[in-house]
Design a protein around this nucleic acid. Structure first.
Lengths: 203, 203
DNA sequence: CGCATTTTTGATACACGTCAATCTCCGTGG
DNA sequence: CCACGGAGATTGACGTGTATCAAAAATGCG
């Protein structure tokens, strides 16, 4: 089974019944409902990640999943109805731990570095097209508030940093069929590692 | 097989061969070796968590594990030699995702809240003694530098916040056999939710 | 007891949060 | 076709929580 979801759409909510999914393209944020009612960012899933595996044990979702960009999902495991084999579960576990380490790293260091790392993570090509031609990577950036929740910054700071990345050439606008689409960018092929430190230096 | 490890001792290193472990007591930090050579904090494991599961796929560890407090480990799965069943792997996956969400939350909010959440996490009783008598929880705090790495604060700020928790009665020194042991505290039973915001208000 | 390491405390600087004012898209209806 | 309005993004000015630098105090260990 395949699902297509658009940005900011909710894939599923905490407590609801459902099954596990594999993120084929796009990116998803997972939130846990805190007692105060506000949804706290819990994890990030990008292409290749499995989400909602807890339903295989509880029958219900532990997190709420929201699309950060247009994305497509497929049921997991592939063969619906049959339980996931141990080998697949092990691989999923290891990938989840690696992804968690990356997300944790997104909340360390200066704002400019964090936002850049997030952009790179979202733009990272899947393992399937490793070693292919050297085309510039492309990203569809999530809403600023989501980027802020992920990096533990504020919406305003993220906006400033994205502007800085544009200005320094790391991100350049992309044209789709003649029209510039708002949040779609291509990564500057020259790995510009220029770091802007303060808000003033961004001008 | 059982291992006893003392604070700051390395359990295993990235790339080394070995097996998976269950943390029976104490706490462990996992680091990934970054290209720059400095070990970046990757994850936190406390009582009940499984670490080193990647060896079941790769044969080698992906992270470096260091004890944050005196802790004991047992081989996992219980029956050495035989592979872990799918059910256990699924449970491990779900626990890992939950723990990751908690660690991510440790890097959000004001310094005082973060340090307090870390202390509470380290002091949390295992699921085995749920609903038991109401005895004050105890913690052995990790070295300040480790607490700083986990919360993405600095050593100095963590020290100030721990002092604040002591002053506000959340943490009180514990005596073991008449001698006050440096980093062992008991949690004030009255849930003091007083939040000190600035460094000045800590005095 | 004396030295090395860790922790605590202090003073100052600055990176980011906060508050607030535009600005840019888009969709909607007159 | 253009005026209108709402939502998200950008930019600016200012305050503050925490990093930084530095020194003293506590702790552990031979």
């Amino acid at each position: 089974m395949i699902r297509n979801i658009s940005t900011s759409e909710v894939l599923y909510e905490t407590g609801r019944e459902g099954a596990a999914w594999r993120v084929v393209s796009g990116s998803v944020r997972l939130d846990r409902k805190t007692p105060e009612g506000d949804a706290g960012f819990a994890s990030l899933a990008i292409r290749g990640d499995i989400i909602g595996a807890e339903t295989m044990l509880f029958g219900a979702y532990s997190f709420t999943a929201t699309a950060l960009s247009p994305c497509t999902l497929t049921s997991w495991p592939e063969r619906e109805g049959s339980p996931a084999p141990a080998g697949d579960l092990l691989k999923t576990l290891i990938f989840a731990e690696r992804r968690a380490a990356e997300v944790i790293a997104l909340r360390y260091g200066q704002a400019a570095e964090r936002v850049k790392r997030l952009v790179m993570l979202l733009a990272a090509p899947g393992a399937d097209c490793a070693g292919s031609v050297h085309v510039p990577l492309q990203v569809t950036l999530p809403p600023r508030q989501d980027m802020a929740d992920i990096t533990a910054l504020t919406l305003e700071t993220v906006s400033r940093m994205v502007s800085g990345l544009r200005r320094s050439g790391v991100l350049s606008p992309t044209t789709d069929n003649g029209a510039v689409s708002g949040n779609r960018f291509s990564l500057g092929s020259g790995k510009i590692d220029y770091l802007f430190d303060t808000q003033e230096s961004l001008r």
